[in-house]
Amino acid sequence: MRQANLEGATFEGANLARADFHCGAGSCTDLDNTNFKNANLAGADFRAVGFTVVEEIGLPNVDFTGADLSGANFEGASLKGALLDGAKLCKTTLPDGKISNRNC
C-alpha cells in the first residue's frame, strides 16, 4: 500500500468519498465541509479536532455517512455539525472517552 505524508495538510472542502484514508495524531485538522462518505477511516485519530483555542466550533458539514470509523479516536473532539448516519462506530472512542460498539 502506498502512503502519503499529509502532515499539516488542510482538507476543508475536500471530497474523499470512498477513500481509504488514515490520519495520525494531530494530522486530521481543518476538516470543514469534507466528504468522508463511505470512506475507510478505521483507526483515525481525530482527538481535539473541531476546537479552537477560544471556542468549540465542531465539524460543520463533515459527512461521515456510511464511513468505517472502527477504532477511531474522537476523545476531546467536537462532533457538532458532523453527519454520522450509518457510520460504523465499532470500538470507536467518543468525545467523552466512552467506547461505542455501534454496528460492530
Rank of each mutant, 00 (worst) to 15 (best):
F11A: 00
A4W: 10
A25F: 11
C28K: 00
A4P: 00
Q3A: 14
T34K: 01
L31T: 03
A9I: 05
T29I: 07
E7F: 02
F36S: 02
F11T: 02
L6N: 02
D30W: 10
F11N: 00
D32A: 15
N33E: 13
H22T: 06
L31F: 04
K37N: 11
T29R: 14
Q3M: 11
H22M: 07
A17E: 15
D20V: 12
C28V: 00
C28L: 10
D20Y: 13
G13I: 10
Q3C: 11
L6H: 03
F36Q: 01
E7C: 04
N35Y: 09
M1Y: 11
G26P: 05
F11D: 04
L31E: 04
R2W: 12
N35F: 09
F21N: 00
M1N: 04
G8L: 08
D30L: 09
C28E: 05
S27Q: 14
A9H: 12
F11R: 03
E7S: 12
F36Y: 05
R18K: 12
G24L: 05
N38L: 15
C23N: 10
A19H: 09
N15C: 04
C23L: 10
N35L: 14
L6W: 05
T10V: 11
N35P: 01
G24T: 05
N15Y: 07
N38A: 11
D30I: 00
N5A: 10
F36G: 02
E7V: 14
T34Y: 11
G8S: 09
L6C: 15
E12K: 14
L31G: 03
L31A: 02
F21I: 14
C23Y: 13
R2S: 05
M1K: 08
C28F: 13
N15M: 03
E12N: 10
G8N: 08
L6E: 02
C28G: 07
D32E: 14
E7P: 00
A14W: 12
F21T: 07
G24D: 10
R18H: 13
G24H: 11
H22Q: 12
C28Q: 02
R18F: 15
N38W: 14
F36E: 03
Q3L: 10
F36N: 03
D32G: 01
T10Y: 01
T29L: 09
E12Y: 11
L16G: 02
L31H: 07
D20K: 14
D30A: 08
D20R: 13
H22L: 13
A14Q: 06
T34E: 03
A4I: 09
F36I: 06
S27V: 02
R2D: 12
E7N: 11
E7H: 08
N5R: 10
F36L: 10
M1W: 12
A25E: 11
G24W: 04
G24Q: 08
R18Q: 13
T10Q: 10
A4R: 06
Q3K: 12
A17G: 09
R18C: 03
T34V: 15
A4M: 05
A25D: 10
R18S: 14
S27Y: 01
A9C: 04
H22P: 00
G13H: 09
N5W: 08
G26C: 03
